[in-house]
């Protein structure tokens, strides 16, 4: 079953697409193909051997900023968090507030501002030392919860006693799944103020807004040999992520190849949050460790990855499903070669 990106904090997308100047709508990579004397485009030559080596030049570019709305609430109270009216998640996907939310978390950060948290979540650069309290609650179908119901891994510390002005930056998240930091559906900052009277926070689709830029059209595509089940993917040489930050090989825990029969890179740019949902077929493989993968390990609904052909668009991503911002650190197009 296809899944949306498991964002932590992203995103009602306000798309400000870069690299959209081309209206060709053609597959990326065709500009590097060669024409035979008769004028027809020929697929490029495949690299020698069966190892497909990924380089920084093959990677897409991504930049984004995050705006998490702040809600002022009465300090030292026991505020109620209500997501019963939340019908759309961060990614703009329809959601069931009772059935899709497995856990809520209230995280208290110290020695850091709301803006720095937003930036740190975008770039996966926050450190645990910024966290002074991590409290959570399994929602069990509920669509609201009081702060007093949250515990530190089951340890009821009366977190509401800390809910006062000047004590840290408070972040509320609701998530699909119970793995801390993964699968966030919506988020909001809480601001306890002594003079405030509000005691209820209603999450809406506007509680968190992501403004991002993604460029797929500039990708030339990685030549990929067809029908090579013994091919090896090698990303050991990568140094930078799509957002320009350092590429940490250990972050990669999944490889995904997706095929789109009718969609172009331009189409995918416009619906970037849904690239997995839109795929006609997806093949994935877990990466426990290391920087290579035998492609025979990729599997999808119809079986093992068969290799690519010259139809439609082929996308390859290296993913970090446990990162705060799971925007793929690496994403590229695969180009049929001979």
């Amino acid at each position: 079953m296809n899944r949306p990106w498991p964002w932590l904090i992203p995103a009602l997308a306000i798309l400000s697409l870069a690299g959209c100047g081309s209206d060709a709508g053609s597959d990326a990579g065709t500009d590097t193909n060669t024409a035979d004397p008769g004028g027809e485009m020929l697929p490029p030559d495949c690299p020698q051997g069966t190892t497909v080596v990924l380089t920084d030049d093959d990677n897409y570019t991504f930049s984004g900023s995050m705006d998490i709305r702040s809600y002022t609430l009465a300090a030292l109270g026991d505020p109620l968090f209500d997501w019963s009216g939340l019908k759309v998640d961060l990614q703009g996907h329809a959601m069931n507030p009772a059935g899709d939310v497995d856990q809520a978390a209230v995280i208290v950060f110290t020695n850091i501002t709301e803006e720095e948290i937003e930036a740190g979540l975008s770039t996966n650069t926050l450190e645990q030392s910024h966290v002074t309290l991590f409290t959570q609650l399994k929602t069990a179908g509920a669509t609201s919860a009081h702060l007093s119901e949250f515990t530190v891994f089951g340890n009821d510390i009366d977190v509401e006693q800390y809910f006062e002005e000047g004590y840290g930056v408070w972040l509320l998240t609701i998530t699909r799944g119970t793995v801390p930091g993964v699968g966030t559906l919506m988020a909001a900052f809480l601001r306890p103020e002594a003079t405030a009277s509000a005691i209820t926070l209603e999450l809406t689709k506007d509680s968190t807004v992501l403004d991002f830029t993604v460029d797929l059209e500039s990708l030339e595509g990685v030549p990929f040999p067809p029908s090579t089940p013994d091919a090896i993917l090698d990303w050991s040489g990568l140094t930078a992520k799509g957002d320009g930050m350092e590429f940490v090989a250990g972050d990669v825990d999944e490889v995904m190849v997706a095929h789109y029969t009718d969609l172009t890179p331009t189409d995918l740019e416009k619906q970037f949050l849904d690239v997995e949902l839109l795929a006609d077929e997806v093949w994935t493989a877990d990466v426990a460790s290391g920087t290579t993968l035998e492609l025979i390990a990729l599997s999808g609904a119809t079986g093992p990855f068969p290799g690519i052909d010259d139809e439609g668009t082929w996308l390859l991503t290296l993913r970090c499903t446990t990162c705060a911002n799971p925007v793929p650190p690496f994403l590229t197009l695969l180009k049929y070669c001979q």
């Binding site: 450190e127 645990q128 940490v248 090989a249 250990g250 972050d251 990669v252 825990d253 990466v287 426990a288 460790s289 290391g290 920087t291 970090c320 446990t322």
Partner: peptide, 12 residues
Amino acid sequence: TGAVPGKLPGVK
């Protein structure tokens, strides 16, 4: 030696 599982948190 091999690599560390990616699911472990980063250390600095």
